[in-house]
Design a protein around this nucleic acid. Sequence first.
DNA 1: TGCAATTTTGCAGTGACTGCACAATCGGCG
DNA 2: CGCCGATTGTGCAGTCACTGCAAAATTGCA
Lengths: 202, 202
Amino acid sequence: MSTTTPTDDGCGLRERKKRETRRAINLAALDLVEEKGFASVTTDEIATRAGVSARTFFNYFPSKEAAVIGTTPEELEAYAASLEQATPGESPVDSLRRIIAEMLAPGTIDKQLRAKRRRILLGEPSLAPALVGNNIRIENALTAALERRLGVAPGASLEPRLTVAVALAAVRACIEHQQQGGSGRLERNIDQAFDSIAAGLR
Amino acid sequence: MSTTTPTDDGCGLRERKKRETRRAINLAALDLVEEKGFASVTTDEIATRAGVSARTFFNYFPSKEAAVIGTTPEELEAYAASLEQATPGESPVDSLRRIIAEMLAPGTIDKQLRAKRRRILLGEPSLAPALVGNNIRIENALTAALERRLGVAPGASLEPRLTVAVALAAVRACIEHQQQGGSGRLERNIDQAFDSIAAGLR
DNA sequence: TGCAATTTTGCAGTGACTGCACAATCGGCG
DNA sequence: CGCCGATTGTGCAGTCACTGCAAAATTGCA
């Protein structure tokens, strides 16, 4: 509990090792996917390359997909908090646009990992199902945060969930567009997509 | 092949039995999910209740999720075709709104199955991952159809994929809204959602 | 009825994922 | 410094989704 662990954040050896292990698994997963494709990689392989046992792999990530994506629950919490207490003049969609940009290039990881993630994300079409599966948790967390920000009870209004779902769908569409050799650059397309959404789709 | 089978559509005993088997599996899956929840149902159980072998189950559906959802590839093709050659004055989003309404209450199945599907769909929150997994195929098929209709090469423009992704996300958001005891009735919420999208989200 | 195509089925295997119990490690405290 | 409680790593055994393969049952047609 937090009452007994004075070094809950990131000081102790324990916490550091955990972060390193998580990173090693994520890195091994990304490398292996790049080498062999997502479907041909086994969790055993990832664990071995990361230097942990097969069982430990699942102590860090609940699924093979999650190990490739690599987002931590802490990051997700931070995004939700950021959405909940956004700057006053910012519309929900604008907040989401900003937060999603941060999700795609989080400042909490080094450049090496960031570049690798980006490369795999855009290069592996077979990762699309993994992406959407992951999005469900994100969507629920962000929806709850937006509901709190708007001061509505959970489920009272359709709007928060709709806004979050549409925003995430737009990003996913841009990623898949890239994966299939589509035109443009990712960030630019995302900007365009949010502009289209704000202007109204027909 | 079609050269040797004069009754390719739906006349012969073979075709009818296949349709019946598919329906039996879908029905068994829906009933079992209602009884025990999606996670607690095994494909073996579904197969047994449907009166087929465990192996045959996978001859009809590629996954447990697909067996619960129950949409056939033929239906999907029909929707794509309908999107591709829409009535002249209809905008892409309007076409999608119409097609999605048909997807939720397809005329090709009887009322019993339709009611059951609807009940399970709205009552099983743990079905959400299955839903989005399924949506990928639908999204790709509809995107391709819309690209053809707009006369753009695949991947040349972001717009078709974005439009389809947003429309499907909106419907999924409405379904999840219902699943979690949200306000309103499904069809009405979907109408509202499409109106919001057309007006532009902020 | 007999033949060819299709469908069903059993079998054996792979791989994701889980619970459990035990060993290793760490952090703090006397 | 060394012990103790808590956390973390690991091996094991098991379940279940899903697949390829080849034999058996079924169907359509001549």
